[in-house]
Computed example of a mutant assay.
Amino acid sequence: MSLSSHLQELKKKHAHLSTSVETLQRSPASDDLEIARLKKEKLMLKEEISRLSAT
């Protein structure tokens, strides 16, 4: 897998997590721990994207 395609996949996952977090936050019966877990995963993806983009 090339670097650009790997970055593309990471960006897709990040966007999907963003959508999931927004949806859960709008839900009245949302699970705060699940939202926190998704946000942490999203942040780790963002950091990896930044790290790989800098190379």
Rank of each mutant, 00 (worst) to 15 (best):
I35H: 05
S18Q: 10
E48Y: 03
H14C: 00
T55L: 04
L33H: 11
I49M: 08
E22W: 05
S2M: 13
V21Y: 03
E9Q: 00
H14W: 02
A36R: 15
V21E: 01
S18R: 07
S27P: 02
K46M: 10
Q25R: 14
I49W: 06
K13V: 01
K46H: 12
S27K: 06
E48W: 05
L24E: 07
D32W: 09
S50P: 03
A29L: 07
T55N: 06
R26L: 10
M44K: 14
L3H: 11
K11R: 10
H6L: 14
L7S: 06
S2W: 09
S53Y: 06
L7A: 03
R37Q: 12
E41Q: 15
E47S: 02
S50V: 10
A15S: 09
L52A: 01
D32A: 14
T23I: 05
S18G: 09
E34A: 14
A29I: 05
R51T: 09
L3V: 13
H14K: 01
L10W: 05
S4Y: 15
L17Q: 04
H14P: 00
T55K: 03
L52G: 01
L45V: 08
A36H: 12
E34C: 04
L38S: 02
S27T: 08
E48C: 06
I35F: 08
I35S: 06
L33R: 15
A54Q: 10
K11M: 04
E22I: 05
L10T: 00
Q25L: 12
M44S: 11
K13D: 03
D31S: 13
L3K: 15
K42N: 15
K40N: 11
E34Q: 12
S50Q: 13
E22A: 12
R51I: 09
L17M: 04
S30G: 03
H6P: 00
S50L: 12
S20G: 00
S20F: 00
L10F: 02
L24A: 07
T19N: 04
E47F: 02
K11Q: 04
Q25P: 01
K12F: 01
H14G: 00
S30M: 11
K13R: 05
E22G: 04
H6A: 09
V21R: 03
S27I: 01
T23D: 06
K42A: 13
L33I: 10
S53D: 09
S30C: 11
E9A: 06
S53T: 13
S50Y: 09
L43K: 14
E48L: 14
I35R: 07
L38A: 07
M1K: 15
S5C: 08
H16T: 02
R37M: 12
D31L: 13
S20M: 06
L7I: 10
D31R: 10
K12E: 06
